[in-house]
Design a binder for these strands. Structure first.
Lengths: 340, 340
DNA sequence: CCTGGAAACGTAACCGATAACGATTGCAGT
DNA sequence: ACTGCAATCGTTATCGGTTACGTTTCCAGG
């Protein structure tokens, strides 16, 4: 009679198989020095007890665990994309993935969450970590790859080419004839937000259009932060004919505000976002945006981390992935194409 | 000179503070029996070394870890909703969350993944686990809560009221005058799929309409599985005037097929889904569907698991959450309301 | 028969932290 | 001064698994 609720530890297997735990370990790990007969006995006992090695105990003793960690501040829809990409990269690689989330920081501004999360995991559990949009510089004795790092970070990272993407987006609006283009920025400490604003400025400057600071709203990537900023921009006596938002989430809020103010898109206002989240394809009109595949970011980050852990990484430690402009219905020439 | 790369273990702290590891442990855990002066010394040493307790070592020794696990077969957009809900429920509860994903099973049919995942975590790492749409019966010595369990499962679980939701959906179509209503089913082993089909049958039977088996397509919740089934249904000489799909993902594919065949929705065909995923609100026309808040499911599952772990759970161990019909543009009376 | 060496296997230390337990100290009560 | 109790802190077993090391077994070669 087998206790179904029993923990089924390695010593249980050893007892049933009539050998020592050392031998069981050798069988489990496929090490040399066990006779075929003993292996069979041990395997049988493992089968019989439904034994599974404890991740915890193994990781405590071993230096390598073949488990990679991923820490994130919150779960958005793009987080799922990142996870899908990471899982794809780790598919049949022998590496498992653990995502760690601390309940204490939910919804609250909690400086330093990355460090705490990583410290918890990186002790012995994981061989390395992916950090999704850290708020600060991250360090650990095990390898770390940041997705969308903070400005000036020198740690290994994967980022979309935010500068080029934003430049292209604004150039698109310029080519349509827009001259007064508003901008809603993201969290300024993040490199992505900074680059996107930089692209906005660069495109305007290249077109010999002075940057008007009053046309820039300081959002924080949180969609809700865009609503009041969009209202302020669109209620001006001289409203912009187009608004470029640093994220699709914020751009969708701009669309809402436009509808609320009775402005037609793209007739009265063109809107361009950044990210290309699934929802952007499904609005009416569809949102013109810059595609950065979060799936791809997750994929590359996991691939890079895996290589760093196994010490096989060759290429640069700061990967920049290309972006592409996705033109949909939300952008069109301004109603009165007043050219200088 | 402090080694930044050093592990910074508890014995390091003990050495620096000039006390034993036991005392450090007492300080860390706020236990009784340490003088104020010693506490200050230890805290100082912790600060100095940047010490963080190892999750692994702690969980190995302790019976309680205050970490809950969540295992899922894959990451979909709804998974993010579940995670958000679970995080909300665990907010400031002292419980952290670990999501474990095995790379080997990505994209492959891997029977028994829940058991392996749970065994890895449940050894000592977590105090309990949430299992998202398990494919089989799950067991563990630590508490388990299943979201959307298999049929006949007696384990603690949280489910949407699929039967009532599906019944309401079909009744909605019936009240619009539809009499030939197609159905695209989900993975039949899951309780949710079974209940939704049951609701479809019940509603028809209540309306004295015989169930036509040829109007039922056997999907598996995977959106792609719906495409050929929808084509088969709509290319019939006597096509249904409405199709009820067991999931929004599949319903959206039905919309695609309808467009492909030149059928207008809702003019030529009404479509109703189930789940109310974000995309459903943004299609043109909007998808009429049954709302089951995955966020709510995640929230309730985490709340229940937390209570089970702390032994405070009072209510029933099988929670059923209400659903609600969300009527959008994809459902309308059939073009020719031919009544029997 | 004796020896060498490899194969096979057990013993025990160890990973980092916790907690039961014992030992020491301080202080109040008598 | 002696007893008793509480406060404080160190020692050590323990969690489950890994591995260095030691021991035993066995067989080939001399």
């Amino acid at each position: 009679m087998i206790e179904v609720n029993a923990p089924a530890t390695m010593s249980d297997v050893a007892r049933v198989a009539g050998v020592s735990t050392a031998t069981v370990s050798r069988v489990v790990n496929g090490h040399y020095g066990v006779s075929a007969r003993t292996i069979a006995q041990v395997r049988s006992a493992i089968e019989q007890l439904g034994y599974e090695s404890s991740l915890v105990a193994t990781s405590l003793r071993r230096s390598r665990t073949n488990v990679l960690g991923l820490v994130t501040h919150s779960f958005q829809s793009y987080t799922a994309e990142v996870l899908k990409g990471a899982m794809k990269a780790l598919s049949r690689s022998g590496f498992d993935l653990i995502i760690y989330a601390n309940s204490d920081l939910y919804g609250s501004y909690s400086e330093g969450w990355e460090k705490r999360h990583i410290a918890r995991l990186s002790g012995t559990l994981t061989d390395g970590c992916i950090v999704v949009t850290p708020w600060g510089e991250v360090q650990s004795r095990t390898p770390i790859v940041a997705i969308d790092p903070v400005r000036g970070s020198t740690a290994p990272s994967v980022t979309a080419d935010n500068l080029a993407g934003a430049t292209t987006a604004v150039e698109h609006l310029l080519s349509l004839g827009h001259r007064r283009i508003g901008f809603i920025a993201g969290r300024s400490s993040l490199a992505s937000a900074w680059s996107r604003e930089e692209g906005y400025r660069a495109a305007l400057t290249s077109a010999d259009i002075p940057v008007d600071p009053t046309l820039i709203g300081e959002g924080d990537f949180n969609p809700e932060s865009a609503t009041p900023l969009a209202r302020a921009l669109l209620r001006r006596t001289d409203p912009p004919t187009a608004i470029f938002a640093a994220s699709d989430g914020m751009a969708l809020k701009v669309l809402e505000v436009a509808a609320e103010l009775g402005l037609s898109v793209p007739g009265d206002l063109s809107v361009v976002g950044f990210d290309n989240i699934p929802e952007s394809a499904l609005t009416e009109p569809g949102l013109t945006t810059v595609d950065q595949s979060m799936y791809q970011l997750g994929y590359e980050a996991a691939r890079m981390l895996k290589s760093l852990v196994t010490d096989e990484w060759e290429g640069p430690r700061q990967v920049v992935l290309p972006t592409s402009l996705v033109v949909r219905g939300s952008s069109a020439p301004p109603r009165s194409t007043a050219r200088g």
